[in-house]
């Protein structure tokens, strides 16, 4: 059964799906939507699929999904045999995961909106979005500090879950919205841990780890030249 994913490359929400699909090695058919400048997601063709007029959209199992967090749960529950990414058997872990899935929506509403304002001039109350973004990032930092103190490095469990993937993009992209990571050391460690995962993929604004890339060392290049 084909999985069809309606995608916009610069969207942090679309990236959540692409990232988890890559981490779980799930193949899917990708349909590029001209979000900007075409506003294709608001065309009648797309509104019929998703009346909310948002991206991404997922068609799978004969259904249409329009909520990113639900898509992540769908991916993990259908395609992760380890059961670690959506730990439904562990009730302590699953409520933590729900907590941070909910929080991810706040990151989109603050950091995500502020980023659209900076990059595409979206008309919003930028000062309010910035205050909300800093508040959200401070909460995330505080939680990750507590996890560090407990000897944990992930948001909801002792291994990465859909919650980490849901919160990762807009946290990592906050410099696009004018908020650097300098004031958030625990967030920096966590971002690094996510970027170190096997199967990690990038998007514009989120790079791979150069230091782990298997590139010719400078010494080797000098020798071959």
């Amino acid at each position: 059964m084909t999985i069809r994913f309606y995608n916009y490359v610069l969207s942090g929400n679309c990236y959540k799906f692409r990232l988890l699909a890559s981490l779980l090695a799930v193949e899917y058919e990708s349909v590029a939507v001209d979000f900007h400048p075409g506003v294709e997601h608001r065309s009648e063709k797309y509104l019929r699929l998703n009346p909310a007029g948002t991206l991404p959209i997922l068609q799978a199992d004969g259904r249409v999904f329009t909520e990113t967090q639900a898509m992540l749960v769908w991916l993990a529950s259908k395609h992760d045999k380890s059961g670690a990414w959506w730990p439904e058997k562990n009730s302590d872990a699953i409520v933590q995961v729900m907590q941070w899935l909910g929080f991810a929506a706040r990151l989109s509403a603050t950091v995500g909106e502020l980023r659209l304002h900076s990059m595409l001039n979206k008309d919003i109350d930028a000062a309010a979005a910035k205050a909300g973004a800093i508040k959200a990032l401070r909460e995330l930092e505080a939680h990750l500090v507590q996890q560090q103190i407990r000897g944990e490095q992930w948001l909801g469990a002792n291994s990465p879950t859909v919650a980490d993937i849901a919160c990762f993009p807009y946290t990592a992209l906050s410099p696009d919205a004018g908020i650097e990571h300098d004031a958030f050391p625990a967030i920096r460690q966590w971002l690094y841990a996510v970027r170190s995962l096997d199967g990690f993929v990038t998007m514009p604004g989120i790079h791979e780890l150069h230091e782990q890339r298997d590139e010719q060392s400078p010494a080797a290049e000098t020798k071959t030249s």
């Binding site: 650097e180 300098d182 050391p185 625990a186 920096r188 460690q189 690094y192 230091e211």
Partner: peptide, 16 residues
């Protein structure tokens, strides 16, 4: 400028 554990090996950070 930092807690040493917040700068592991092969990392760079900014401070003022």
């Amino acid at each position: 400028v930092a807690l040493a554990r917040d700068l592991p090996v092969q990392r760079v950070m900014r401070a003022q």
